[in-house]
């Protein structure tokens, strides 16, 4: 296969360990993230999507097994190398500050700047490219608290793009957005993976849209964590295992959930 593997996890167990007590969230997880793929992570609330994302971004350790980023254990990489290979878009609110959109995106260049954080010409080019790709150049001089939620989400994605990493991981980027902005965001992510060869992994509750636009999906259920292409999941009927409720049924022909 030509598709280069960026991140790989084989048979990992995730969860939290307090002192000696282990709280296992999921185990036996196999994941492979390849260049140029848009991958959606779906699952019911509380199933452990965030724990999985925290684990493969190296914020949290695995209970068993290792996560390999470009063939190296993610916890053995130094902070800077990690920052040059993996960028994130989180759900948490930004602390209050006077940062402008441009300054916020420019912070994405920190893994490349000198000790005082001076931007070079090459850095400015990357920042402007990121703003053009996300179509927010006109917002550059605005303070980050003056713009709408949808625009802020784009700014945060632009920040991750400016970080110029082969892998971007987003935690629920479409929450708080209306249908129009959700669609725009999904299409932006799709465009980015097609045009820049980056791999983008995101968690979402918008399963219908994820089925239509993503290249691969990762489904989390209490029984297993599976990775495959959306059409294969449909033919296998995997979406019906997602929610433990007989009233929610996946309609294979329409490709969406219906309430019975």
């Amino acid at each position: 296969m030509e598709n280069k593997i960026i991140l790989q996890a084989a048979q990992i167990s995730i969860g939290y360990s307090h002192n000696k007590e282990k709280n296992l969230v999921a185990s036996g997880i196999d994941l492979t993230l390849r260049k140029g793929k848009l991958i959606a992570l779906i699952g019911a609330n509380g199933i452990g999507k965030s724990t999985l994302l925290r684990t493969i971004t190296g914020i949290q350790k695995t209970i068993l097994g290792t996560v390999l980023l470009n063939g190296t254990n993610i916890h053995e990489l130094d902070a800077l190398t990690l920052a040059q290979n993996l960028s994130v878009v989180l759900t948490e609110k930004l602390p209050p500050s006077n940062l402008t959109v441009f300054e916020l995106i420019a912070l994405g260049r920190q893994p490349y700047t000198n000790w005082i954080g001076k931007l070079t010409g090459a850095d400015s080019i990357k920042i402007n490219e990121a703003m053009e790709l996300t179509q927010i150049s006109h917002l550059a001089a605005k303070k980050h608290y003056e713009i709408s939620d949808g625009q802020l989400q784009k700014v945060l994605i632009a920040r991750a793009l400016a970080q110029d990493t082969p892998l971007i991981i987003l935690d629920e980027p479409t929450t708080h957005l209306d249908l129009l902005h959700k669609v725009a965001l999904f299409r932006l992510l799709k465009k980015l993976t097609d045009e820049t060869e980056k791999c983008i992994l995101f968690s979402t509750h918008d399963i219908d849209m994820a089925i239509q636009l993503s290249d691969e999906m990762i489904i989390m259920t209490p029984e297993a964590v599976l990775q495959d292409e959306p059409c294969n999941f449909i033919s296998k009927g995997s979406f019906n295992t997602l929610f433990k409720d007989e009233h929610i049924v996946f309609d294979n022909e329409k490709g969406k959930f219906t309430i019975v």
Binding site: T57, I59, A79, L80, L82, A83, Q84, L86, S87, V88, L90, E92, L94, L107, G108, Q110, P111, Q163
Partner: peptide, 8 residues
């Protein structure tokens, strides 16, 4: 968390 992801 963002600061850490930037290599801090």
């Amino acid at each position: 968390n963002y600061a850490k992801s930037l290599g801090l």
